[in-house]
Computed example of a mutant assay.
Amino acid sequence: MDDDRNDVLSALAPLIQVRPQVEQHCLFGPGWSAPHGREPFGLAPFHIVTAGKAQVLLPDLDRTLDMSDGDVLLLPHGARHTVRTAGAPADATTRLERHDNGVVEVRRTSDLSGGPLAAPTLDLICGRFAFERVADNPLLALLPEAVHLRGGGPRLARLVETIRDEVAAPRPGARAIATDLARALFTMILRGHLEDHGEGTEAAGLLARPATARVVAALVQDPARPWTLDQLADQAHLSRASLVRAFRAAGAPAPLAFLAQVRMQLAVRHLVAEGLSLAETAARVGYESESAFSRAFKRHYNAAPGDYRDAARA
């Protein structure tokens, strides 16, 4: 990314107020699998493969991700998933031995207790990012369900190696250092996502361009405002026609259509994850009446808000 784009990321990243929680160092043998349920609203699990290979099953997305040394996976919206050593059956498990090393909980499969030759098949660091003021930071709605940052780059490799050193060989201050490094990792994940998908993903394409990123930032700060195209063009320092062209170049819909799309994404999170009423959700996402919100929601999702919420919670 060029300097302007990096400046945009530096401005946008703090809008997602995040508190890292580095929680486990996992050392697993072959044939191990662990399911994770959907996280509560505002918690996003992450997994760092420091050695070996892993697979992550995402049943709600009908996807399986293959991860190897240095890869990082972030699930921004807390999607349920299963982590397993590569090739293991989805329901495979083995007994875990656990102890606290003063920084994280160390989890080791019992088949690795047979002495120094019992090397782990998978070395994994796990944790969660706790997002504060989630309802006021709808930039999160622009992130996909899974962000997979592949290793191989020297900067990411150094960061991953340093995090592992701090959790694996505890020294004074290791917990604080690991937490600060995880905060830097979060911003690096955002940057990697923009670099990898800036030309192919609507939100990433918008955030990767300074003019359109200014518009996104304005929507993030005040999503319920009755924005006009003129006001959005002012935010971008462009003419209305130039702003529309910039959105199209990023692979996104027209600015006001994009605003409606973001509001609908937020509405789902308010209804399903936060349990807000239809009236509260309508107000949060910029609709003056519950009926107007319901009509817009049904056009977008082909289901009434209440029916959608009930189906998602079933």
Rank of each mutant, 00 (worst) to 15 (best):
F41Q: 08
A254C: 03
T64D: 05
E166L: 12
V106I: 10
T82L: 03
R5M: 11
D66I: 10
P120C: 14
R84M: 10
V244M: 08
Q231I: 03
G198F: 13
A246G: 09
R284Y: 01
G200T: 15
F28A: 06
R5E: 14
Q21S: 10
V160E: 02
A130N: 09
L207E: 06
V49E: 06
A218S: 12
A217K: 08
R38K: 13
V167Q: 00
A213R: 02
V285Q: 02
H193N: 11
I48K: 02
G102R: 02
A168L: 04
V220C: 14
A174K: 02
L117T: 09
R313N: 12
Q24E: 14
L12M: 15
G78S: 03
F129A: 08
G152Q: 07
A211N: 10
S289L: 07
G275M: 10
A213N: 04
M1R: 05
R164S: 05
M264R: 09
G306V: 12
V56W: 01
G31W: 07
G70D: 11
L124Y: 06
A217D: 09
A211K: 09
A130G: 14
G192N: 09
E290Q: 12
S291C: 01
H300L: 07
P120A: 14
E145G: 00
R240S: 04
P35H: 08
A257H: 05
F247H: 05
E288C: 01
G275Y: 05
L229K: 08
L65D: 12
P144C: 03
V215H: 00
Q231M: 13
H77Y: 05
P20E: 03
E274Q: 14
M1K: 01
G78I: 02
H81Q: 12
G192M: 09
I48P: 00
H300N: 10
Q265R: 15
H148W: 08
A292W: 00
E199T: 13
A296G: 09
